[in-house]
Simulated scan of single mutants.
Amino acid sequence: MKIELNRIDNDFHFELKNERGHISYIDSKAAVGGHDLAPSPMEYVLMGVAGCSSIDIISILKKQRQEITDYKVSVNGIREKIEDATPFKTIEVTVFLEGDIQPEKAKRAAQLSFEKYCSVSKTLEPTATIEYKVVVNNKKV
Rank of each mutant, 00 (worst) to 15 (best):
S113Q: 08
K29D: 13
A109Q: 01
K116N: 14
M47L: 14
H22Q: 08
G77Y: 03
A30M: 15
L5H: 11
V73F: 05
D36N: 14
R20N: 14
H22V: 08
K63C: 10
N10G: 11
I78E: 08
A31P: 11
F12N: 12
C52P: 07
R20P: 13
I91C: 06
Y44Q: 13
A31E: 15
V135C: 02
T127C: 08
S119G: 06
S24M: 14
S59M: 03
I55G: 04
S59R: 01
Y25R: 15
I101L: 01
R65Y: 06
K17F: 02
N18H: 06
A50D: 13
E98R: 05
R79I: 04
L124Y: 09
D27I: 15
F14Q: 10
N137M: 04
E19M: 12
I91T: 06
E115V: 10
P103I: 01
Y117I: 07
S40N: 14
A128Y: 01
A31R: 15
P103T: 06
E15T: 08
I23M: 11
T94N: 05
D36V: 12
H13T: 09
A38W: 04
L97C: 00
F12Q: 07
N6R: 14
T69I: 12
P126D: 12
A106C: 07
D11Q: 14
G21S: 05
C118L: 10
K17C: 02
I3G: 07
E80H: 11
A30R: 15
L16I: 11
T86N: 08
R20V: 11
K107L: 04
L97E: 00
T86L: 02
I78S: 03
A128S: 10
Q102L: 05
R108E: 09
G21D: 11
T94D: 08
E19G: 09
A128G: 08
I68L: 02
I101A: 01
G99Y: 00
G99A: 04
I55K: 12
V45L: 10
I130Q: 01
D27W: 12
Q64W: 10
N137W: 01
N76Y: 11
L112K: 13
D11R: 12
H22F: 08
K140G: 08
A50F: 03
K133H: 05
A50W: 04
V75A: 02
I55D: 02
T69Q: 06
E43H: 14
Y44G: 12
V136P: 00
N10L: 09
V45Y: 02
D100V: 12
I58N: 06
L124M: 04
L16Q: 15
E67V: 11
Q102F: 03
T90W: 04
E125G: 14
V134P: 00
E4Q: 07
A50V: 09
